[in-house]
Amino acid sequence: MLTDDMQVVYECPDALTDVITHYCPGCTHGVIHRLIAEVLDEMGIREKTIGVAPVGCSVFIYNYFDCDFAQAAHGRAPAMATGLKRVHPDRVVFTYQGDGDLAAIGTAEIIHAAARGENISVFFVNNAVYGMTGGQMAPTTLPGMKTTSSPTGRDVELAGFPLRVSELLAQMTGAAYVVRRSVHDPGNINKTKKAIRNALNVQLNQAGFSLVEILSSCPTNWGTSALDALKFVKEQMLPFYPLGDYKVADSAKSFIVG
């Protein structure tokens, strides 16, 4: 009960639905969902936004957002988003994809969406494993990292090296805004939110393709506590996947902040 001497400091964003998510305890998908929803609210664009859901842990993202959603096949979200955006150029279209979805089976779709300068925003959640199928080696699994399909640790002689998606896509002339952020602590969560806002603002101003890679934790499949998982992001993932702005094209500069 709100009384006169109390004020609301935290509430559910309008862009989120009031349901309990299926995510595991300690998973950072919920944090990232909330950041996107807060930005949709603050920019006043929830009603004109169409999301494209991936295959993977966030396959049910459409249950948690109060905006139109399409459910893509594994890896195909950028192609589906292209179709949607081309017929609704005045709508905001974003995809939400994990590392298995975006960086393995969907490599062709993401590279060519970026190369075309497709005016969509991609929120790329990198937790270095296939989460939904139970923690197998992903294209972003670190060298030496144990997963259910690299039980003795990723052997780069056998399995090759991880993909650095932001660095790769930053080379695309068509990419306007490509940055890597992390949600392992409050300061970085705030920076991630700013980047999400920047990406959507770039799209709203027809400045081209935008992607925010977000380093995320998976305590269940990493076999760690929630806190240790955040520590793993900071100590193991950050050195391999440095945070930063990998591409801010001239076309995008006036639409981003800090």
Binding site: V52, A79, M80, G83, V87, H88, A108, E109, H112
Partner: peptide
């Protein structure tokens, strides 16, 4: 598109719209 996989999923998106 980049492939027929791309085209059919673009069709899927545009038709969904």
């Amino acid at each position: 598109a980049e492939s027929e996989i791309g085209t059919i999923n673009m069709v899927y998106g545009a038709a969904s719209g």
